[in-house]
Every structure is written in structure tokens, then in C-alpha cells.
Design a protein around this nucleic acid. Sequence first.
DNA 1: ATTATAAACTAAAAGGTTTAAGCTGTCAAG
DNA 2: CTTGACAGCTTAAACCTTTTAGTTTATAAT
Lengths: 353, 353
Amino acid sequence: MRQTGPERVKKIRGDVTLKDIAEVVGKSVAAVSRALNDHDDIGEETRAYIKQVAREMGYIPNPMAQRLRKQSTDTLGLILPVFSPKSFDPYFSELLAGIANEAGQHGFDLLVSTCVPGPAEIQAYTRLMNGRRIDGMVVTRPRWNDERVAVLYEKEFPFVVIGDCNPAQEVPCVTDDAGFGARLVVEHLVQLGHEKIALINTPRELVFSTNFYIGFRDALHRAGLPVQEDFIIEADFSQKEGYRAAQTLLSRPDTPTAIVTADDIIALGAMAAAQDQGFQIGNDLVVTGYGDSLLSEYSQPPLTTIHRPTYTIGQKACTKLVAFIKGEPVADFREVIEPSLVIRQSSDLALWL
Amino acid sequence: MRQTGPERVKKIRGDVTLKDIAEVVGKSVAAVSRALNDHDDIGEETRAYIKQVAREMGYIPNPMAQRLRKQSTDTLGLILPVFSPKSFDPYFSELLAGIANEAGQHGFDLLVSTCVPGPAEIQAYTRLMNGRRIDGMVVTRPRWNDERVAVLYEKEFPFVVIGDCNPAQEVPCVTDDAGFGARLVVEHLVQLGHEKIALINTPRELVFSTNFYIGFRDALHRAGLPVQEDFIIEADFSQKEGYRAAQTLLSRPDTPTAIVTADDIIALGAMAAAQDQGFQIGNDLVVTGYGDSLLSEYSQPPLTTIHRPTYTIGQKACTKLVAFIKGEPVADFREVIEPSLVIRQSSDLALWL
DNA sequence: ATTATAAACTAAAAGGTTTAAGCTGTCAAG
DNA sequence: CTTGACAGCTTAAACCTTTTAGTTTATAAT
């Protein structure tokens, strides 16, 4: 029954299906399928032959058919918040790179969607979930009482959270330790002799912000410094908001000598505001960031910040999510990565030398 | 035959299929499908009823079944070059945002994959194509004799190119006018009185680089200035490469008074090199970039550059690709967008005032 | 009264894969 | 010689939707 020659090449262009292979090798479609998937109820010889023919014919499985049948998509979902048309946070770029690379390693596709933050957000999530387009979801920047997490959890849809999330919820997550980061920054500033340290925090609905605040507060306590509530202010993730916040802080009668911010992009805004008021950053006033994004290296002056291994976090989160989807045992639900301090000129102009 | 009550609600959780609806309304599966898709051979009343029941039952079509049947995926592919683990070019972030947003508008999903540039690249492309995972592909940073374009073209796979591409190939593309951008920069520098203008160009295999070079050269000619070949040097898209290139330029006996670069990130490297050699950027030496990425605004000093509307380019490219896939007539194959000059302190320190 | 036409549907196939269940033949144990 | 076990297959169903090619019924035209 073995055919060779033209017949076997016939379908070399166009879409070769299991049926085509079955015809050539003279076995059933099921046998071909099972041979290619290495089931053990197909003879050694037959299996080898089928595989060879499949290779020669250039067989590529039709993913849609597989997905329909297996009721799984081998695809992960990631929804990026796009605030303004003009680009988005470099944090997400790095995260995306980590996730996408790792997903590829596991044979998963990555579906990326965007949405403007707000009420439409949850729709974007449910659309991907309900549409059975993806097997699992990556959630970023978790909030207290996060509706996204609630929905995913309730529907028992596999997901992983990137960033600190509500410890009351037992959800798989990979995060940097914001509190530890804040502590590193404050200790650095205390060492430099600062006593009046202000904080521009990210929005309070983020779990991250709370942890950052707690780390900040505790570090001050530990240094024997008071926590002045009017030295603490919130800002969204934007340069503009950072500018506004710093302006407010610096217009007070008693100005701080250091401004800790919970995000690099906010720090950039804060630096701009301070500079506009005549401060020399790194000398009259110290500003620090969080994230160690590309921006912090090239800012003016370069920004002292907390290095968060975003790429690695993306990778680990992806690995965890894939394990989850495959039903493999997941060792540690909550993976915490220690960030590190990167000292640049914005905290110590002497480094210019 | 109309059922109401529990039966209709029975499947409200879990996956409602056409069959379930058909049973409830007492019609055939085909009728339900045709009603929901607004075919005109279903009675007005029936159609309304079916739609209502579908809504009540929370019916969501199974995309995999649709895709298998329709032999299309309603998904676009984008492959991001990831050079180093540490983040990627902000250019791609902005592009991604534009493409993803627009794709969503058209009801398309966006599949994002990454690959390290090099020989593995073409595999990533063929994998997506051959796997029938996507209906169309976005190609970025086209090169002369671009293998990706060749493969896509040869297989008649729908695609759109973002960025200048080989004019000999009749391929759909959306691009900024690099030559025009170069001209704007040179004219600006000439106006500032510069006569010794160097160029750090991007790698010559990119069509962009050639166009940028031609614009640069022509603008010099027009200004009556000579084109000195040893003032022209190439660099990859990295800060490091920009640093190296500028170092080379500035180590020559006759140093330029202005360095034009073909990319912001290269410009940042060039500035760093110049600063390390004691130049005051914007005064002793002028450096310009291309792209107007986030970085350029926050660099030290802020970078005079060419604004490329990357987000918009992403949107337009996506629209074009979708039209192409749907077989709609595409008006202009080649869409060229004029960039504009953004003057910051790196070319004119007086702006500091 | 017959035929043509249109409206409103239905049955079945197709899209490609995987899997549950069943079948055949061989060999060994009883 | 029977029974059982096992290897190595095959058949048919399932996944869910869309489309092709009818079929039925009612109405209009002849």
C-alpha cells in the first residue's frame, strides 16, 4: 500500500491534512494522529513511517481544529492599559518582552489587547475570557478589590497577577517587594543625612502603593524620623501628575529636602517641577524613582531609583501561568522578588565628578 | 414549542451553543445560525425571537469553531525584535499601541511574538503563517532584500510594511518620510550656522537608512556644503553603538560641530560620548535624533529630534492590513507621512533660558 | 386547476483534529 | 482446545459553526 513519488508530493503546497497522510500511508486518520502524537498503541515501525511521510509532505497541524477539539487555545492574554495615544509606560514594554519570550518557549501564543483604563476595562477582560480565545490571563497592576481578579477568580479562569496583590486573596502572583524597595530608598536618603523626606505615591487603589507606603513609613520610624502626613501625596502614572504633585509639595512653607516617588515617570515630572522652581536636583533637592525604566538612566540628571527586574518578573509570571493551565503543581503561589537600589546623580550630584 | 423558565436558564453558565438555542426555540441549528448572522432567509419574527433567546441564554459564539469553518482567524501577527532582555525600543511600544488599538476597533485580535534578530527571525514568521494562526502580518523595519517580505509575498500572505521599503517591490506600506526628516534637521542646523555636520546612520541594510542618507546628502548639497564621507558612520539601534560611533567621530583631527543621528537612542549614546569628552551639548556640539521617543524628551539635555507619529502609523498600517485581508480595495498602496522637527536644547542651549 | 415563485425553513456536509470504544489477529497460559 | 491478554489498529463521535442544496408551504400568476 505504500505510495511513493508524485502522489506523496502532490499536496506539498497547500494544506496537508491528516487525511492526506492517511491516504498515502494507507492507514486510518486516527492512526496517523496517534502516531504523530506518540501514543503507544501504534507500532514502532508504522509510527516512524507515518512521521517520515508527514515530514515529507510538509504537514503542519491546523491549530484551529486542534483548539476546537481540545477546547484549549494554547494562548495567553495580556491587556495593556493605554493611557494616551502617545506611547505607554516602558514598564509594560519590558513586561511584554518577558512574557512573550517565555510564552514562546512554552509553545504558547500571546494575545495582546489594549484598553483605556476605566469602566471599559472589565469588558476587555470578559471578552477574552468568554470568547474562549485564551487559556489564561495576565493581570497587571492589581488593585484592592480588583474587579478583574474577582471575575477571573469567580469564573475559575486561570490567571496570574503581576505585582503585589491583596494578600487576603489566594491568587498566584509574581511581584517585586515594594515595601523593601521603599525601605532601601529611605535608608539611602537617611544615610545622606536627609530628615525631611516627602513621598509622592502612586494611586491608593493599587496594592503596590500601600506596600510602598508601609515600607516608607516603617523605614522612617526605624530611622527615628517622624511621618508627616502633609509630606505624602498621590499622583497618577504620568509626568504631568508628578509635576503637579511636586509643585504642591514645594509650595509648602516647610519644604522637604528629598522627594521619594513610587514610579520613575512620576519622578521625572517631580524633577521638572523642582527644576522649574530653581532647585538643583541632587544638591538642593533629592528625587528618587521606582522601576529603573529606560527613562531613569537618561533623565536629567540620571535618576536614583529602585531596580525592578521587570523582564524576569514577566518571564516568571508566564511560567507560573502556563504551569497553572497545564494543571501542574505550582510550588509557591506567591513569588516575591527583591528589588535593588540604583544610585545615580539625582540623589547625589557628587557622582557627576 | 416555545419553552420558558428553567429550561432556558439551564445553560446560562457554561458554554451555550447554537444547538442549545435551537432546542429552546424549536428550530434547526442552521436557522439559528442564519438568524444570528442576519441572513435574509429567516423570518423577521423568528429572527427577533432567536436573538432574544440567544441573549438571554448568554450565547457567545465559539471563535475556534468559527475560525475552523471560515478558514480565517481574525487575528493579526506582529513580531517584535527583542535585542536584549532589558526592554526594547520605545518605538515598538508606541507602534504596538497603535496597532493593537486599531485592530480591536476592527474586531481583530493581535498576536504578538518576539524573536531575537537574526537567522531565527524568519522561522518566527513562517511559524505564524504556516500555522494558520493569523490572517495577516505586520512587518517592521524593512530591509533591502528583505527575506520576510520575500516569503510573505511569494506565499501571497497578506501583510503590511511599516517603514520605508524597497520601492521596487509593490507592497502595501505606511511610512514616515525619512529623507524629508533628514532634510528638516540639516536645514535647522544650517540655519544655526553649522558647516561641519556629521551623520551617525542606522545600519545600511535598512531602507530607512538609505533614505535618511539621501535626504541628508541632498540637504547638504542644497546648502552648498560638501559631503564628507569620513563624517558618516553607521551604528546599530543602541546607546552603546551610538556612544562608540560618536567617539570615533570626535577622535578625528577635524571634529564636526553637529552630529545628526538617525535614531533617538543612538543620539543618547552620542551625547554621552561627547559629554564624556568634555563637550557641552547644545553649545560646543549639537546632537540630533530621530523618532521623538519618550527618551528624547527626558534626555540630558532634551533632544532635538524628528517627530515621527508612530502611534498613527501603527493605526494606519493596521487599517490597511485589515482592508487587504477583507479584500477591500486599498486606495494608496504606499502611504507616506511627513515627519516634523522638534527643537530642544541639544541643538540650541539658548532654549535653557 | 395548475404552475411558478418566493419565503422560511431543514438536513447534511464540511472544516481538521482527537479520543472513546470497539475490533482483529496473535500468542501464551491453562 | 479454549480463554485471556495484548498489540495494533479502525470506526465513529465529538468539538461548534457555517454553508450548500434542498424541502415545504403559501401565495400569485396563468
